[in-house]
Amino acid sequence: MSSNQSEPDSPPQTLVKIRGLRYFRGSRAIFDGVDMDIKRGKLTAIMGPSGTGKTTLLRLIGGQLRPQQGSIIVDGMEVNKLNHRQLYELRKRMGMLFQNGALLTDLNVFDNVAFPLREHTRLPESMVRSLVLMKLQAVGLRGAHKLIPSELSGGMSRRVALARAIALDPMMIMYDEPFTGQDPISMGVLVSLLKNLNDALNLTSILVSHDVRETLSIADDVYVISEGKVVEHGPADVVQKSGSDWVQQFIQGKNDGPVPFHYPAPELIDDLMHG
């Protein structure tokens, strides 16, 4: 799909365009006027503290949720105006890696990776086999194709899920907290895998994470969101040198700053005296 970039009427550089996005859960604003441009072929990171709705943003792009206001345009199509069939056609060109892999527990590794191929194509079984083994080779788990998901470690599950996400050669792939809870080795494996896949397959990647160091080391473009708004945007080194105290606190992981250590409370002395 990315090959038609070379055609004369080349598609615009922006693959996902978000304008004026507002999304409420109950009366709480998760997003309150967010604008974003995800560039084709780049790895864009979206960072922010837990609970800022980063996962929600991916679900909005994937059309699993609908925004109350604003528009999300993916490859020229407005996601929340598509009908069921069009949306599903669009999703065939998107991959998504869920936080814990979300492998289908009743299928083994091979069948998990083969799942999208068998559902959406009528390829002969021998070709499915070659494709699956190639995808598994790319994530280094060809030898594990007979294992069932419960036999895999967290990092391996995510790698299998990654192989599954790229099974249909999507134009873009979304990662939901891929580094959370990984030991340093599997973290390193995942980080380089993400980067290499993005470059080798000419993918557009959206990476949602709060693992600052790893994310900044591979991201081409970074958005930092907090309280429903974009607070910083730019290439990794620009964001790192941000003048905002809040961004500095987030990036360096200081325990006090604009985000206070203490949950809002009356003065300690008052509480003790009147308790």
Partner: peptide, 22 residues
Amino acid sequence: GLMKATEQLSAMEMMAVDPLHR
């Protein structure tokens, strides 16, 4: 329920497979 809790249903939706049908 467990498939939903472990995001398997969501994952299917994102793979353009309708979990209601599959």
